[in-house]
Design a binder for these strands. Structure first.
Lengths: 336, 336
DNA sequence: CTGTTAGCGCCTTCAC
DNA sequence: GTGAAGGCGCTAACAG
């Protein structure tokens, strides 16, 4: 039904090897035969079967990427950068959604490995022992992303969620905010959120805040932010800054403030984390931590390509850094 | 390096065919040999090579799905439903991001087809002639989604963006809104947005609005919504309802209203389309069109499974319907 | 430079 | 119920 390489070879009166060579751009083919073969390929509408190629070459040209939630714009951006870089090299992405669940991640890794991908991208740096073992045993390049660790499975490209949260808390302290609370999700526990919390606690310890260690837990959605606000307002010690582990929580809190007529940042300052498009659009603008996720994805892609080319790049850990965006929600640009 | 089926067969003292049979759950294997083989599989940690299986069986157990933007929650939900259903049948999804660009879609379809997927899911019902031709020629089941058409490539599951937009405009008219404008994105032209616009225009034609046909164009992001508001406010005929082609536009407009101190819905009512989580969270709540996208994805998955099972299901077009959610942004629940 | 020959790992008849 | 053998479509030596 579909035309095969052998048929092209017959039509072009050459061996299958030659067709394979022109297909893969080997240079040891005379221009004349190359042209003839390419003509046949075009005329016959030949399309290589990558499944067969993958089996023969034990290179599938496929990279698997695992993200905690397809549809989350943060991860989408990383995937976009990663996919762009890989695509330029004829490699395609197979994306898995592990829904913030480690055992689901393990199952997907197991499944995906049966498809013999050339490499793997994982979101986050904390994974099941079995997941790590499978990945290591596979022998293919692995890149973990969106956070940093000193003990990656293979290599890691990201930024320190810990350092970013700490820096944000410290900056807010310098800006005059004294009594702060931190709200994080419990619904989707993961290393990025966990490290943000730790960074906040570290800053508190260093600064000796009154409210040191005040931590709230809420589902990671708009309602969760609203719920946290409720607690903050009724807390014994008056709180003047709410640090949220994600922009979604922060925006939920801001919406709730609007509903209750609570001035932001006048009565309560609010900051987030992620710098979603929403953070810049909302009024007041949301102070948050920004990371160039597309660039991060691209770096991850280049790292994988390096490894795939056999080069053991000296970099096993790349920090892409972060930026704190101060906006009106914490008083930036507002006259005192 | 990795253990193969043949090695398992040798260890279990059976032929490769037998191992293959237990692997694929064929019933014509005696319980005793079945157990012995399964024991060996477990002991040796054998994992089948799906690339080889795909080549031999000409069934890859892979379905390709194309969405216009990975990271967009709407499409993420569809993929989630689709992936869930397929995964239960051991089928995995390969996701492509065509960025609202038809020629990119064409390129991705061409690439993906080389991997011999068992089926294809496409977002939207309008595609390149060449894309349609390639897909048809492939002979595999194709499902188009997120809209409806009478001329699908193979079959389609979605809802009528046209009918939904028209129903929304008509409902708003019944609620007393008389002079309305519609804003849609130009940056990402696609059939869903186009049909929403047509639905609005159809309603206008039927209702004989004063502002019949007032249509604005803006980039499909928060800023685009704000920009549209600017035009609406300066329009000669006073407009009392802004219908937005997407929730993102609508929310951008609401934010801008808040900045300018324009009462919503007092001075201007606003409605969106998509029912993102944001629509319910924002104040005022956003009136919008809601579709159960996860369910839509699941239906698409079942449709593909039907087709893959060889059953030519009588359904070639499934309408999953829509719901209009009236919220405060158009005056719902507000005393007159 | 180019044709030929083995496989890659698995499925699938086809006899036994 | 089970083993043996022949591909699936392609790549990768290996001769020439």
């Amino acid at each position: 039904m579909t035309v095969t390489l052998a048929e092209v070879a017959k039509r072009a009166r050459v061996g299958t090897g030659t067709v394979s060579r022109v297909l893969n751009g080997a240079r040891n083919v005379s221009p004349s035969t190359r042209d003839r073969v390419q003509a046949c390929i075009r005329e016959m509408g030949y399309r290589p079967n990558l499944v067969a190629r993958g089996l023969a070459a034990s290179r599938t040209g496929m990279v698997c990427a695992l993200i905690p939630a397809i549809g989350a714009p943060q991860h989408g951006e990383v995937i976009q950068g990663l996919g762009d870089v890989l695509h330029e090299h004829g490699i395609q992405l197979m994306i898995g959604d592990c829904g913030y669940q480690p055992d689901r991640e393990e199952a997907i890794v197991a499944d995906f490995l049966e498809r013999r991908p050339d490499a793997f991208y994982l979101t986050g740096v904390v994974h099941n022992a079995k997941t790590r073992q499978m990945l290591r045993a596979s022998g293919i390049p692995i890149v973990e992303g969106a956070n940093l660790t000193d003990d990656p499975i293979d290599c890691v490209v990201g930024y320190s969620n810990f350092a970013a949260a700490r820096a944000l808390a410290q900056l807010m302290h310098r800006r005059g905010h004294r009594t702060m609370a931190f709200v994080a999700s419990t619904s989707d526990p993961n290393d990025r959120i966990g490290d943000r919390l730790k960074g906040y606690l570290a800053a508190c310890a260093e600064l000796g805040q009154d409210t040191r260690g005040l931590v709230l837990e809420s589902a990671n959605n708009f309602n969760g932010g609203a719920a946290a606000l409720d607690i903050v307002l009724h807390h014994a010690a008056p709180i003047d800054l709410l640090l949220c582990a994600t922009d979604v929580l922060a925006v939920g809190a801001i919406f709730e403030c609007q509903r209750r007529g609570i001035a932001v940042p006048g009565r309560l300052a609010i900051a987030g984390f992620d710098d979603l498009p929403l953070a810049a659009a909302i009024s007041p603008g949301l102070t948050t931590v920004s990371v160039d996720r597309i660039a991060m994805g691209r770096v991850a892609g280049h790292m994988l390509l390096q490894r795939l080319a056999g080069r053991q790049s000296p970099y096993t850990k790349i920090d892409v850094g972060f930026t704190i965006r101060e906006r009106a929600s914490t008083g930036a640009g507002i006259a005192p």
